[in-house]
Simulated scan of single mutants.
Amino acid sequence: MLLALYLTVIYIILFTFLNGYTFIFAETYGFSEGITGLSFIGIGIGLCLASFLVPFIYRFAKQDLAKIKAQGGTRLPPEFRLWFAMLGAPAIPISLFWMGWTARPSISYWSPLVASVLFGYGILCVFISSYQYIIDSYETYSASALASVTLIRYVAAGGSVEYAIPFYTNLGVPWTCTILGAISALCVPLPYLFFVFGPKIRKRSKYAVV
């Protein structure tokens, strides 16, 4: 339920954030419609940067799995999947605060563009981790778990398209991004809490693996 809430919040922020690009780059910096579209490349670069974590986490996985096998175990615990989220979750509120308060004519447009790279990085890390953790935690029931999470996420986030533009229009870029950053910051501790207390939580479920 908490991961479903986290992914829903992330999706609401994502949809609201993307609607703000017109306000951030077209109105603030005078970008044309085409150049504003190119600004989304920053998020794409951030998504690619998240892949650079794979070799490091894979090396940790091999080391931990060797220790577990030496103790008679056969596989890594689901909590190992949370490394991506723990390394990426703080990047989301940081990027939102960064973009919100530096997207102004007196500051170079490179500042919000670099912030968008951090945003893309954080978003992918959280999504990779959350889905892998749910799959490993529920195994046989993972399809049902993922379906419920996806349904909740899309239903809740779909409404963000309706209020995103009025949000930016009435509050402006700085305060809209600040509110989104504050909401995402409240969810940042979740992957760390699951990393520590995940085994105890899974023991209380009749569907999760122990």
Rank of each mutant, 00 (worst) to 15 (best):
A50Y: 00
Q132N: 14
V188Q: 02
L186D: 03
P199T: 10
T74W: 02
G122D: 05
Y207S: 14
G88M: 12
I57A: 08
Y168I: 09
T28C: 07
A182F: 08
Q132E: 05
S184H: 00
A4D: 01
V209I: 15
R202Y: 07
C48I: 07
I107F: 14
T102R: 10
A26P: 02
C125D: 13
Y121G: 02
A164K: 04
V173I: 15
G34I: 00
L65N: 03
Y207E: 15
V149A: 12
Y6K: 05
V209P: 09
A115R: 07
N170E: 08
P77L: 11
A50S: 15
I165H: 01
L96A: 07
A26W: 01
F127A: 13
G122K: 03
A66T: 08
R153P: 00
V155Q: 01
V117F: 08
T178N: 04
W101A: 04
G34V: 04
P78L: 04
I57P: 12
K200P: 02
I45E: 00
S32C: 11
I128D: 06
P93D: 12
L3D: 03
L124I: 15
L3C: 01
V54P: 01
G198Q: 06
P199N: 08
F60V: 04
E79A: 06
S144P: 01
F52I: 11
F15P: 00
S116H: 10
Q71P: 02
K203Y: 04
Y29H: 13
T36V: 13
V173N: 03
L146D: 02
S184L: 05
G88K: 07
E162F: 14
I134E: 00
L47R: 01
F23T: 10
R204N: 11
Y141A: 12
S108P: 09
F23I: 12
F119C: 14
I152E: 03
F52E: 01
C125H: 12
P191Q: 09
C48A: 10
G122A: 09
C187H: 01
F40A: 15
Y163E: 05
T8R: 02
Y141K: 11
S129Y: 13
G120M: 07
I45W: 08
S108E: 05
A145K: 15
S160F: 09
T102Y: 09
V161P: 02
S130F: 09
P174R: 10
G159K: 06
I45F: 13
I43G: 00
I134L: 13
L151Y: 08
R81S: 13
V9E: 09
Y109D: 14
L47W: 07
G120E: 05
S111V: 14
L14P: 01
G198C: 09
A156N: 02
L7G: 02
L18V: 14
L186A: 15
S32A: 10
E27R: 13
P174A: 10
T140S: 10
Y207I: 15
F17T: 05
A66W: 00
L193N: 00
W83M: 14
P77V: 08
L2D: 04
P166M: 11
Y29M: 11
Y133H: 12
C125P: 09
F17I: 01
I45V: 15
T176C: 06
I13H: 08
K203G: 01
T169R: 14
E162Y: 13
N170P: 00
G159L: 07
F167L: 14
L65M: 08
C125R: 12
W110I: 14
W101I: 00
L96V: 06
